[in-house]
């Protein structure tokens, strides 16, 4: 096992150094056909990763299948990511990639991009225009923003002084604070649930962590309704 890994590294290394795969494979002692195939696959993968990056638009357009055209999501559980600062998006992608930010699927996807590619995607999306959540008639899962809950949420937000960071009722978007006004309520609700599960959330800044601990899940949900109601 250890040896196999080493062999793979040699193959990939050889390729990077400009030697052809065939020569390296011959030099190592007789690997099985399956090993050789696996090594060739790994080598192709390493070479593909090292290949030049595509343009920002080409890269970012592949996100649209889930996050909507130009990052404006039409799916209630998927966040809109248009117009967020490059550095913010880059950091999120880096945290997905490293696993610091837990995820169901984004970790698998973020690992597919080099730092430069992530930068290009982030740059492109940062220039896209934010769009408030609008539910399509065909959507059967979207939660409606509840005015009653939003009202309760507003009180909680005031009491916790959330606006110290999440300025303008969550409209503010900067390097480390995400915009929440007009975001999908279903997405915000999922995030609130995650906040209550240590292993599902990234370490939060101290003040944020204190607020999460103070508020019950139901209260956090009211907060989600409040921010989603703001446009």
């Amino acid at each position: 096992m250890q040896l196999k890994k080493l062999h793979m590294l040699i193959v990939a290394g050889g390729l990077l150094a400009g030697t052809t795969f065939a020569v390296v494979a011959q030099a190592a002692d007789a690997p099985s056909a399956a090993d050789a195939e696996k090594a060739a696959k790994e080598a192709a993968k390493a070479a593909a990763i090292a290949a030049p990056p595509a343009d920002g638009a080409i890269l970012a357009n592949t996100c649209a299948g889930c996050h909507g055209t130009n990052g404006v999501s039409a799916g209630p559980a998927m966040p809109t990511i248009a117009g967020m600062p490059t550095t913010y998006l880059q950091k999120i992608m880096a945290d997905f990639k490293s696993g610091k930010r837990p995820s169901t699927i984004m970790g698998r996807i973020a690992k597919g991009y080099t730092e430069e590619e992530t930068k290009r995607i982030s740059d492109y999306l940062s220039k896209a225009k934010w769009g408030d959540s609008v539910s399509h008639a065909n959507s059967v899962t979207a939660t409606k923003v509840n005015a009653e809950k939003a009202k309760k949420g507003k009180k909680l937000v005031d009491a916790q002084k959330c606006s110290k960071c999440h300025e303008d009722d969550g409209l503010t978007q900067d390097e480390d604070t995400p915009r929440m006004a007009g975001q999908w309520v279903d997405y915000l609700l999922i995030k609130m649930q995650d906040f209550k599960n240590q292993h599902l959330t990234i370490p939060q800044p101290e003040k944020m962590q204190r607020a999460i601990e103070k508020l019950s899940l139901q209260e956090l949900e009211d907060v989600a309704h409040f921010y989603a109601s703001k446009k």
């Binding site: 649209a64 299948g65 889930c66 996050h67 909507g68 999501s73 039409a74 799916g75 209630p76 559980a77 998927m78 169901t104 699927i105 399509h136 065909n138 959507s139 059967v140 899962t141 279903d186 999922i190």
Partner: peptide, 11 residues
């Protein structure tokens, strides 16, 4: 949940 949202965004 993501499945249905995937559908909405891709459509």
């Amino acid at each position: 949940l993501y499945n249905e949202s995937w559908y909405q965004s891709i459509m």
